[in-house]
């Protein structure tokens, strides 16, 4: 039996991380959850990650730095930023997408269908 693809969730908001995790598990993913940037980098070093959802504001590190480190460690991973602070039309978000610092952006609260769609897309890459 083929091993499930692995998704990494990096958010210091446990309930939100939990809901994302349940969604992805139902979609057939293996899910890793980190509440800090440092823990996320450690997990990205240990396992192949196909998709990562990274909160922009983390307690210990800047989410963008975490995203960059994950991308370096897992070049095949699709990195999606999530934020309760920024909106998709913000200059910082557009600039980040343009420079391909991350592959997608989702603002909180979000649609689970959107999460599933992005995860599906990551599998197809």
């Amino acid at each position: 039996m083929k091993a499930s693809p692995t998704a990494l969730i990096v958010d210091d908001e446990p309930d939100l991380a939990w809901a994302l995790q349940q969604t992805l598990i139902l979609d057939g993913w293996e899910v890793l959850v980190s509440h800090t940037g440092r823990a996320a980098i450690g997990q990205a070093m240990a396992a192949p990650v196909r998709i990562a959802f990274v909160d922009v504001k983390l307690p210990d590190m800047d989410g963008l730095d975490v995203a960059r480190r994950i991308a370096e460690l897992q070049p095949d991973a699709m990195v999606i930023m999530i934020s309760g602070y920024y909106y998709p039309e913000d200059r910082e978000v557009k600039e980040g997408l343009r420079q391909q610092l991350f592959a997608g952006f989702i603002s909180k609260p979000f649609d689970l269908d959107e999460i599933s769609r992005l995860a599906q897309h990551a599998l197809g890459r």
Partner: peptide, 24 residues
């Protein structure tokens, strides 16, 4: 900005949990 972020976290969690409930 901080307050909005603070609100969007519990809203995001509640919203995601509600969608999950509808899905399953």
């Amino acid at each position: 900005g901080g307050i909005a972020h603070q609100l969007r976290n519990p809203l995001g969690a509640a919203s995601a949990a509600a969608q999950l409930l509808l899905r399953e």
